[in-house]
């Protein structure tokens, strides 16, 4: 089974790829990108949930750091959730400029967020939670987001 770091990093790449496909599709028409946009939002929500409901609490329990890096990551998730909403409203409003402006903003925010997680938080989590790694990955994998 992959480590927490590998598992969540791979999930980032999966989201990146759907994002790229969604943008490409939106280049032809916003409406045709709707399905991919919904898939992207669902995958992002699932990723946030895996972290916020499983990995972050485990990390906080183990390290006692509740107001540290995980809190910062939660705040950035909130920023991204807001942009995801704006992205879907741009499709509803058929506003192409707003869609691409929002997607660009989201992309940069998302990438710098991923970088912090992949280079700092995940290695820390792997270090502290290595003994429980398989169980945590399996819980994240089976998580169903309502």
């Amino acid at each position: 089974m992959s480590s927490i770091k590998e598992y969540l990093t791979n999930d980032h790449r999966k989201c990146d790829e759907i994002f790229a496909k969604m943008e490409e599709e939106a280049g032809s028409s916003l409406e045709s990108a709707r399905t991919l946009a919904q898939e992207f939002v669902t995958d992002m929500q699932h990723h946030f949930a895996m972290e916020e409901q499983v990995m972050f609490p485990e990390f906080e329990k183990k390290t006692g750091m509740t107001q540290g890096p995980t809190e910062m990551m939660r705040q950035e998730h909130a920023q991204m959730r807001s942009l995801l909403l704006q992205l879907m409203s741009a499709i509803d409003e058929k506003n192409s400029d707003r869609f691409f402006g929002t997607s660009e903003t989201l992309m940069i925010l998302l990438q710098q967020h991923n970088m912090k997680e992949e280079q700092m938080l995940y290695p820390m989590a792997q270090q502290h939670l290595s003994a429980e790694s398989d169980r945590i990955v399996s819980t994240m994998d089976s998580l169903i987001v309502e």
Binding site: Q79, S82, D97, R98, F100, G101, T102, E104, T105, I108, L109
Partner: peptide, 24 residues
Amino acid sequence: KILPFLVWFHLNAMGYMKIPTINE
């Protein structure tokens, strides 16, 4: 790339949500 994001990022962190997007 950096400049519009920088402005967006700082405004967003202050609680402003309805900000022109990077492309605008």
